[in-house]
């Protein structure tokens, strides 16, 4: 327990940790402030204004159509006829349906519909911070010689690395829980002031809680992977280098190659789609080169649905692989 509290203290005392937490807090605050000022509450006044604007645009469009139609008919039989569709056919008269009031409504924050994206934003930012702080937490210890010092005090390698990892993950779990609670409360207030909280049934709250739980898992896996990679390479740069390499190879390189090879569902080989599947419970990828013809629906492309259990399996696999590899090398390598 003494080692655990020492490692927690070490983590929270580090300037790197403080700077990144301050940075992510400022970014989240900027997002919240931005959402507050770019949304507004919708009332009868806004609806009336939107209706008036829609009607005005419809009238303007209609007048333009009538003028164009008159010009077209006047041009028939002259050299200018080529500027118009033959026989003025195909010129479609606008209808009021082309100018729906909802499109003229100001942006408003619907908590039930829009908060999911905010949960994903929070989870992605915290996962990034967990990855970098986790990598630096153990990487700096290896490169500065602190790990060797620690092993002279506690010559139990697996225990030392395990407790260090536990301190990191518990810290980020607590941090994510606190940030999620504040984030939820903040956006609930924003929705009340600049949107709506209608439809927040217990089921909707449960769905948000589960999504935040999946966000927490993402943060934990990111922290553990950053920590594990830096420990494997005994340097923070190892984790960051592998990540940059993975982004270049998997996202740009592999993405381009798969696209050139016309591989079916190429997106399924890329990392972001799995993260979206994890956070949004599922994501559907369509192969637009295929055509499943049906007389009722016409040409329907083949689809592949990635679900959160599939994404969860991959996350768990990566977590176990990296952590076990880092523990195994910690146990077997000479500390020089």
């Amino acid at each position: 327990m003494s080692l655990y509290s020492a490692e927690t203290r070490r983590l929270t005392k580090r300037r790197f940790t403080k700077l990144f937490l301050l940075g992510v807090t400022l970014i989240l605050a900027a997002v919240a402030v931005g959402m507050f000022f770019t949304n507004e509450k919708v009332g009868p006044e806004q609806i009336a204004s939107a209706q008036a604007q829609a009607q005005q645009d419809y009238q303007r469009s209609l007048e333009q159509f009538q003028k164009d139609m008159a010009d077209c008919q006047a041009a028939q039989g002259t050299a200018q006829a080529s500027n118009w569709p033959p026989g003025c056919e195909g010129m479609v008269e606008p209808t009021i349906d082309n100018f729906q009031t909802q499109w003229y409504m100001p942006p408003t924050f619907n908590f039930r519909e829009n908060f999911g994206d905010m949960v994903t934003t929070l989870a992605a930012l915290l996962a990034l911070v967990a990855f970098i702080v986790g990598a630096s937490f153990v990487g700096a210890e290896w490169s500065s010689g602190g790990m060797m010092n620690l092993l002279l005090w506690r010559p139990q390698r697996l225990r030392v690395l395990g407790i260090k990892l536990a301190a990191l993950l518990v810290f980020f779990t607590a941090l994510t829980v606190v940030f999620s609670a504040i984030w939820t409360g903040l956006f609930y207030l924003i929705a009340q002031a600049r949107g709506t909280t209608d439809g927040m049934t217990s089921g909707a709250w449960q769905s948000i809680a589960l999504m935040e739980l999946r966000g927490l898992a993402l943060v934990i896996v990111a922290g553990a992977v950053g920590f594990g990679l830096a420990s494997l390479g005994r340097h923070t740069a190892m984790a960051l280098g592998v990540t940059i390499g993975a982004v270049i190879v998997f996202q740009f390189g592999l993405g381009t190659v798969l696209a050139m090879a016309d591989v079916k569902f190429a997106e399924a080989y890329l990392i972001p789609i799995w993260m979206i599947a994890w956070m949004n419970k599922e994501v559907k990828i369509e192969d637009y080169n295929s055509c499943d013809f049906n007389s009722a629906t016409g040409c329907v492309p083949d689809a592949l649905t990635l679900t959160w259990p599939m994404a969860g399996g991959i996350l768990a696999g990566v977590f176990v692989l990296i952590v076990v590899a880092s523990m195994w090398t910690m146990r077997s390598r000479d500390v020089t």
């Binding site: 080692l3 602190g146 060797m148 010092n149 620690l150």
Partner: peptide, 29 residues
């Protein structure tokens, strides 16, 4: 290990911590 104090090769510490923090963390551990 609790009865053996050791330094091996050049002194290596985390540069951004104070001496008091460094020793305090080791004492905790």
């Amino acid at each position: 290990a609790g009865q053996v104090g050791a330094i091996v090769e050049s002194p290596q510490f985390f540069g951004n911590f104070t001496a008091q923090d460094t020793l305090s963390l080791l004492a905790d551990a």
